[in-house]
Design a protein around this nucleic acid. Sequence first.
RNA 1: GCCGCAUUCGUCUAGGGGCCCAGGACGCCGCCCUCUCAAGGCGGUAACACGGGUUCGAAUCCCGUAUGCGGCACCA
Length: 497
Amino acid sequence: MTTPSKAARVRFAPSPTGFFHVGGARTALYDYLLAKKTGGAFIIRIEDTDQKRYNPKAVSNLLEGLRYLGLDWDEGPEVGGDYGPYYQTQRLEIYQKYIQELLAKDRVYRCFCTPERLAQVNQERQKAKLGPGYDRACRNIPPDQSARRAEAGEPFVIRLKVPLEGSMTLHDIIKGDVTIENQMVQDAVLMKSNGIPTYHFAVVVDDHLMEITHIIRGDEWVSSFPIHLHLYNYLGWEPPAFVHMSVILNPSGKGKMSKRETRAPDGRVYPVFLHTFKEMGYLPDALFNYLALVGWSYDDKTEIMTREELIERFSLERISSSPAAFNYEKLDHFNGLYIRNLTVEDLTDRLMPYLEAAGLKADRETMLKITPAIQERLTVLSDAIAWVDFLFVDELPAYDLNLLVPKKMSLADMPGILQNARAILAGADFSHDALDTALREGAKAVGLKAGQMFQPIRVAVCGKKVAPPLFDTLEVLGRETVLKRIDSALERLEAGA
RNA sequence: GCCGCAUUCGUCUAGGGGCCCAGGACGCCGCCCUCUCAAGGCGGUAACACGGGUUCGAAUCCCGUAUGCGGCACCA
């Protein structure tokens, strides 16, 4: 099996039960890459057959996530297509038709067992250390009797008649041949008592009808592939190619990636939902690039790749069969690289929404001036808030005066230094280079190291020790504000507060 | 319990019998640069899970063990 050169039809088929998770995003990304590489179609199909877990917000969250990542789909919700509907609950008659066909062929059977009996059977099997399972009690009910009971209104599900002997082999593109004995396979429920199909049935019918060529899905499905393959056989259909991917692990490499976002002891949030990546300010291109590398590699050196290169170079064969941990540090590194590659205008435009969301009255003109100074300091776009907030307040929030004090100096030295600095700044030309010269010479004149003078100024003006480079900051702030803030610091020092 | 899958530096990976006393990247450590913080440059630390085979030769093939993960729902 090799990656085909002919157009592939690949679907991403999520169940709308919660927020769009990065694990799903990676699967969708590979779907997308394969579709684009082969000039085929990337399809979204909503597998909403579980009414109990259905979450009405899930679909829009999913679609927004896909758009954020730039995974535009050719067929599916909102865009339509020739193979719809793309919501399984809108395809119930279709499943009904094929389940009847299987019933007629005697490849499936009605099961009248109650949930209570099923639970009891499971319990007994557990006791016998057999693991859960169904005892096939209804498998041999004669067809006429079965039909009569159904007509009488007795509730039933429809199960697959899995052969009692033999085995099934799957030719997986990543894993190679995997064989499972039919004995190990349950008579899976295909149709629930409410007339809605289960995943196992709907997926086979839809993939065939939608002419899907490659099923890329998670590892958790390999043990149920016999069910699907039997179904293809019974229906007389040609199965598509299967690609089972390993799960994504937690950063530690132990345990699979958590389904929920958690806060680390240091307060940092490790995003797992696409909307959180977006809120934090991960660039779509950076996430796209990084995600492609979680479980796939191009060669022994190349990591930074554009979307076009990724599409060009992607191949199913190079997807790793072992699980991969999600490395946030590396993602951050990628994001930093991508941010630094942006033009100042582009970066600024991307920054504005984050500043607004943080409640800052930032204007684009000012940002255009400061962006170059913070560009190389950003890991994610939302970091900008802490870098520029002092530019957009009338008055600085009270900061700890001890922050003013450089190493080897004391609070008592501050008034003198600040007064001196104020005098220099009052007469200086407020441009980067002129400030540089004036301040350095001023420090030298009074026997101070540049840093010893810069820190008090920085803190007085920014209210924090870590801020953009001083001269850029002063220039953007302007003389008036700078002097005002220094005066304010001096007043507070005098007051001893 | 049974079945399946996986196992190279802390992490992502290259490697498909000799090119590997194992290459790249993130992280980490050190140095340089430096007004804070970054960015950047240079250098460094660190791995073939274990035990048997096969072979002249194994990270690469086979078997077993261990560990991890997944599955065994009227959930997907």
